[in-house]
Design a protein around this nucleic acid. Structure first.
Length: 666
RNA sequence: GCCGCUGUGGCUCAGGGGUAGAGCGAUUCACUCGUAAUGAAUAGGUCGAGGGUCCGAUUCCCUCCAGCGGCUCCA
């Protein structure tokens, strides 16, 4: 006996009785017209479905709108289909690859000989506009895998065929059709193309098929889409605003760093103000690490290839190292074996890409008892890595950088507490920089399908990764897992941030390593008088200074907190006759260790203030007749403006307090 | 390394087959000034580098270098 009514549980927990076979859209309309209008798709019993789906049994239903992440994704996925449809109309020969929604937008990859220029992008956008105004219904249909392959072959879509062939034999393949356009897709999708009211194509980029550089490079078109024009405009405006925080732009304007064609790619030059910030950070880090039981080392920036053969860098990292003392062709033909360098007379040297093998030599300089452990080495360490030429980006991705390097050599029993100590240190650093809520953790694991990338056995990898996971879970660190992101010698806990363009980068990394320690013959003598291999924790505390500086510039839009501002106070004398008093004020401040500049130009005070504001100096001290007469200063904060007149002493206390707190009140 | 775009005075940018222009900045002079731009004058560019086409190239073509946005890779 067939029931004609079913019960649906709604998001708020209420239950509604409806006719069996009711479409989701009709349900939404029965709930509210507003909801129906905003609906993009639905989740039925945890599964995403189209609004046209029919409800056949008792179930839970949640209507998705653009306000949810899933809803936005579905909305923009339909936008990507509209893009592909437009491209197919204009370029029937274009082969379709994939076209997903991404954070803040979507893209679609095409294989086409014609390069998509910006003119062409405009034409495609116009065609998309037509597809939207045609308001084509988007319809789902399915077919068996076999038939899907046949149809896609007929349509000459080799990439789609490849995708289908990767699915199981018995898979039922779903397709979506809008007008003349058809695409293989799991969905769900918007009910019709007319819903995509506001969209924009943003850029063209190359992208390898299936993300592998061994494959053909396709053309990727990026775009974004919103239900309303105003939302699109707000988004585009936000992108423009973000560009103003770009550390490269601000770095130039604020004279923090520069690049020069004749120096080389990925080799930025830190100007006095930028170098000052880095110096402040370095002193801060070195002092804090000393307080936490680290011993500072200073090791060479290059070594014979022998050392790198021992460490495994020669076998796994050589193409990223700068070689010294070898002709390039020698380097090419150098065998990849583990034998040591053959000629002591003319050894091949390499600039170091990492510090570990150097500090390990120091550890190995004598026998260690378990009583010595943990040994904590730190170094402000300059490294060199020959990054691919297309990779360089300002201070974020460079070929020479200085890292707050450190290695902890520990017994197995000490591993967790030392790991925790490292995380404490990192947390302290992030909090001091004021970025603790801008970062997140990534647990970077190896890729078992790509064993030749790594040293050590699969068993060791699984073992170490298991230990690391236990520690992370035990310490309650919230992390996202990432396969294939490990270092060649061990898994990592990476601390990630996003730059102003939304691109994710690692700022700090903590690694547990068993393999490298063993390769380099590191041991300690345990209670039972047996030599045993220690664990090594590789870590940075504040990351690499260049990248950290880049992040800070973008975080604060160049207005550094007073404790790391290259100039903390700018003295602004009203006129020439106040120069002498201004100089005395400046000298007093400098004597107390404050970083001070004086604007002695023959300019009006308004101009001096404006320029100091543009330089983002935390405090300006206006000194004129009133102040010179009373031994005071008129304080202006870059943030709060005129703070009134106060004694120089009082101002120094204010600033000293702010520096000590590492706060950012100015 | 790969795809696309870009490279014009210190900076931001306009121009375009007949050897270059604006604003800001800089310099000099005048003004000696009270919380986000005083005025005037002056200087400053082998138009990223090399090659080619052309009577003639900064402009068109090629190669290289560098930058930007992606891909791949990564701190």
């Amino acid at each position: 006996m067939e029931q004609r009514k079913i019960q649906v549980t709604l998001k708020d927990g209420s239950i509604k009785e409806i006719q069996r076979g009711t479409r989701v859209m009709a349900l939404a309309e029965s709930l509210s017209q507003g909801l129906a209008k905003a609906a993009v798709a639905a989740v039925v019993d945890g599964k995403q479905v189209d609004l046209s789906a029919q409800l056949e049994q008792d179930c839970s239903v949640q209507i998705l709108t653009f306000d949810s992440e899933d809803g936005r994704e579905i909305f923009r996925h339909t936008a990507s289909h509209i893009l592909a449809q437009a491209v197919k109309r204009l370029y029937p020969g274009a082969k379709l690859a994939i076209g997903p929604a991404i954070e803040n937008g979507f893209y679609y990859d095409f294989d086409l000989d014609t390069a998509f220029s910006s003119d062409i992008l405009g034409n495609i956008e116009a065609e998309m506009g037509r597809i939207v105004s045609e308001d084509l219904p988007v319809e789902r249909f399915t077919m068996p895998r076999e038939e899907a392959v046949r149809i896609l072959m007929e349509n000459e879509e080799p990439y789609k065929v490849e995708l289908v062939r990767d699915l199981p034999e018995d898979a039922v393949i779903s397709f979506y059709r809008q007008g003349e356009y058809m695409d293989m897709c799991t969905g769900p999708h918007l009910p019709s193309t007319g819903r995509v009211k506001a969209f924009k194509l943003l850029q063209v980029a190359g992208a390898y098929w299936r993300g592998s550089e061994k494959n053909k490079m396709l053309q990727r078109i990026y775009g974004t889409a919103f239900p309303k024009k105003a939302e699109l405009e707000a988004h585009l405006e936000a992108l423009e605003e973000a560009k103003k925080r770009d550390h490269i732009k601000l770095g130039r304007e604020l004279e923090l760093f520069m690049t020069s064609d004749v120096v080389g790619q990925g080799l930025p030059l830190l100007m006095p103000k930028g170098a000052r910030v880095i110096q402040l950070l370095q002193r801060f880090v070195e002092d804090e690490e000393a307080r936490r039981g680290y011993q500072l080392t200073k090791t060479p920036i290059m070594a014979k290839s022998d050392l790198y053969r021992l460490s495994g860098h020669w076998q796994h990292y050589k193409d990223k190292m700068f070689l010294v003392g070898a002709e390039p062709e020698d380097a090419e033909t150098e065998d990849k074996g583990t034998q040591t360098a053959n000629s002591a007379a003319d050894p091949v040297m390499a600039l170091r890409p990492m510090t570990c093998p150097f500090q390990f030599q120091i550890y190995n300089s004598r026998v260690h008892s378990y009583r010595d452990l943990p040994v904590r080495y730190s170094e402000t360490s300059t490294l060199f890595r020959k990054e691919a030429s297309g990779e360089m980006h300002g201070l974020i991705r460079v070929r020479q950088f200085t890292i707050s390097e450190g290695h902890l050599i520990v017994t197995p029993e000490q591993l967790e507490s030392e790991f925790k100590g490292v995380l404490d240190l990192i947390h302290y650093m992030m909090t001091s920089l004021g970025i603790q809520s801008d970062i997140w953790y990534r647990f970077s694991k190896w890729d078992p399908a790509n064993k030749e990338k790594y040293i050590g056995t699969p068993e060791t990898w699984e073992d170490v990764q298991g230990k690391m996971k236990d520690i992370l879970d035990h310490l309650g660190i919230p992390y996202r897992e990432a396969d294939g992101e490990a270092a060649f010698y061990g898994p990592k806990l990476d601390i990630q941030f996003k730059n102003v363009h939304g691109k994710e980068d690692t700022i700090i990394t903590v690694q547990i390593d068993f393999a490298l320690a063993e390769r380099l013959g590191m041991t300690y003598v345990d209670k039972d008088n047996e030599k045993k291999p220690p664990y090594v924790i590789h870590r940075t505390s504040i990351g690499c200074y260049e990248r950290t500086l880049a992040m800070l510039i973008e975080k604060y839009a160049g207005a550094f907190p007073a404790w790391i501002a290259p100039v903390q106070v700018k003295i602004l004398p009203i006129s020439d006759r106040h120069l002498e008093y201004a100089k005395r004020v400046a000298d007093s401040l400098s004597a107390e260790g404050f970083r001070t500049e004086m604007d002695d130009r023959e300019e009006k005070i308004g101009r001096k203030i404006r320029d100091a504001q543009m330089e983002k100096v935390p405090y300006m001290l206006v000194t004129g007749d009133k102040e010179a007469g009373s031994g005071t200063v008129a304080v202006r904060s870059r943030k709060a403006g005129d703070m009134g007149v106060m004694n120089l002493e009082a101002f120094m206390q204010l600033l000293a307090g702010e520096v000590a707190q590492k706060s950012n009140s100015a």
